[in-house]
Nucleic acid binder design. Sequence first.
DNA 1: GAGACGTGGCC
DNA 2: TGGCCAAGTCT
Length: 294
Amino acid sequence: MQIPNSPAYHDPILAWYEANARDLPWRAPDATPWGVLVSEIMLQQTPVARVLPVWREWLERWPEPAALAAEPSGEAVRAWGRLGYPRRALRLHASAAAIVERHGGEVPSSHDDLLALPGIGAYTAAAVASFAFRGRHAVLDTNVRRVLARLVSAEEYPPRSQTRAEVRLAESLLPLDPPTAARWSVAVMELGALVCTARSPRCVDCPVLARCAWQRAGRPAYDGPPRKGQTYAGTDRQCRGRILEVLRNAEGPVRKPELDVVWSEPVQRERALDALIADGLVDPLDDGRYALPG
DNA sequence: GAGACGTGGCC
DNA sequence: TGGCCAAGTCT
């Protein structure tokens, strides 16, 4: 389905955003591209409320990429705290180093240069290029995908994995003027986060309710294939989390028994520890102890 | 392209 | 209670 670039969609959503946007620090006028980049990595699969305090600590401690790059990667992992998916901290540290080496310490503004950084995929490259540099890029995150699925495709949820059709649709809806496109992108994301939510959407507050295809169709329930539910208890992921938590909370290197106590099943425990080492999240010392990477 | 990868809050 | 969900990326 092709929808022309249309102010009929743009104006109500942009106006809604002006009136309803959350006052988030990475959206402040004095937010730097580095601050935006850090926020985008932290916000991957992680709610805003949990990101806020950690983001403030990071930006105070490492106000620019060079400051982070100058520290051991383990410090990034430790400061990551309980945000989850700690490989993100490692990749952010590696990105900071790459920014210093390849871009003179300045976060690059081009989508291609951003995409080349570790931990930055299509979404994050588009988000940073848009929100930090006011560029014109299709920003297709889970919020935008859901809004477009409903507003245009009359589906309660978007497909399981992103399709070319979704990308084309998002691009076709992008305002022509780059700064306006950047504003539009963040506005649609915010609409998805606050109104057009996954469960119990607040349609009465929607600025484009009258144009919503899903609404006009009678809000039919999702009838596609079951969406993946992630188990956690008893998994390697939980085991890895326990091990890393010990290391984060320790002052320095710890002995093996201190790690062993967090998981009773030895085969899984060893597998998880080996995987953490392979991922670069844990450093096995010569003296047999374990530490966050140096 | 399916599966791995953390953590916690909500209904 | 427990499944679902949260600004994804990588292999």
